[in-house]
Design a protein around this nucleic acid. Structure first.
Lengths: 214, 214
DNA sequence: GTATGATTAAAACGAACGTTCGAGCTAGCC
DNA sequence: GGCTAGCTCGAACGTTCGTTTTAATCATAC
């Protein structure tokens, strides 16, 4: 059954890409983990790069769909006024929710994202862009409406800062120990901490109104 | 002159590691950029991995020394009370200041950091740890004193979030355009934006006192 | 001028990589 | 039973890698 083989390869590739990054993950290692033949990758996916593309598409689709669904709920609410917390939550929560579901398989979804987003690979970049275009097109204006005291550009930069806090923290599991702190007990604890940090950061005063230390 | 060759190799390696990451950067590419013989790397540094170690040590030393110097200045001030902004600035500013100095050479220092911090390499990790141990040992307690309303663990997590915002944003130059925003005009503008974001995030209310959306 | 250590260079090695090929197996259809 | 398409497999290819070897050159000291 060809489909079962494809899924085995995708699972093994995800795990290997998360652990080693793209360049250092070898097809021999991936196919050994998957328990399939080396040639299967090229048969089912065409190339190593195409395999990576499939791994990313398989995971980002659901996360971004969930983000957009949460955003739609927010925008349907009758309560007026800015809801930065809702937006931050809608952006971050789906990642943590999918993590619990997918990490059962022994992969580290968030580590995968963090690792692959730092890969300087043109195809990766274009897949990211394609996956995130709608999310960006919907979230950036929503944040801008919720944060009218900020310049449009600064809102976008803050979203980048927020994504950076999300991604980098997840790339390195175990980094808390390095900082003399315990690991968050579960995904919810970390999500709560990050939402608080993010909401506060997003709603910080604008650079014009703040006296910045120099 | 052996020393001149070493510096050429370090500069070329830095540029290549920043652009490609560690695994995908080849010694042949590096030595071609440096205009030296392939064997020079092994002669002067011992191995590819040792070369990476030298690249990191060369750059992180001055940044972390600057961080500690700024922290010492803060702690010497007679003004009492928490100075979260000073701490955030002390942590972030040295990176931007060195960037202006070192990028003259055509390397992208911040991109290098971001790229290499995501490398799942044991030696890289141990070098990072060694370089950052003193910074962490001094900054984490200082932040904890400045933020007594927070649990000790949460302070550490927030520092991680802050570092994540710093690192990830820098890993991908040009990402602002993807979000429909212009690039920050200069390093100072980006630093100011990030300091505001970070200070506000660090000083956010604790999870106990905040009602987090669920 | 000679000796020595440092440095550089060309060449080659062994290993591993991703990709391709030809053969064999399996399941479904007639 | 025969045929076909899909799928899997072992083997090998060409390429690239990091490292090593050997020889030559250079700078310094005497």
């Amino acid at each position: 059954m060809g489909h079962a083989t494809s899924v085995k390869i995708l699972d093994a590739a995800e795990s290997s890409f998360a652990e080693h990054g793209f360049a250092a993950a070898s097809l021999r290692d991936i196919t050994t983990k998957a328990g399939v033949n080396l040639a299967s990758v090229n048969y089912h996916f065409g190339s190593k790069e195409a395999l990576l593309a499939s791994v990313l598409e398989r995971r980002f689709g659901p996360v971004n769909q969930a983000r957009l669904a949460l955003l739609a709920e927010l925008e349907a609410e009758p309560t007026p006024g800015p809801n930065v917390e809702g937006l931050v939550y809608a952006l971050l929560a789906p990642v943590f929710q999918r993590r619990c579901e997918w990490d059962e398989q022994g992969t580290n979804f968030l580590q995968l994202i963090g690792r692959l987003l730092s890969v300087p690979h043109e195809r990766v970049r274009s897949i990211m862009k394609a996956q995130f275009d709608e999310v960006i097109a919907r979230f950036v204006p929503a944040f801008r409406r919720a944060l009218p005291h900020l310049e449009a550009d600064e809102v976008a930069w803050r979203i980048l800062f927020l994504m950076g806090a999300l991604i980098n923290t997840m790339t390195w599991s175990g980094m808390s120990e390095m900082f003399g702190a315990r690991q968050p007990c579960d995904a919810d604890e970390l999500l709560d901490a990050l939402v608080l940090f993010g909401v506060s950061g997003m709603t910080a005063p604008s650079r014009q109104s703040a006296t910045v230390l120099r």
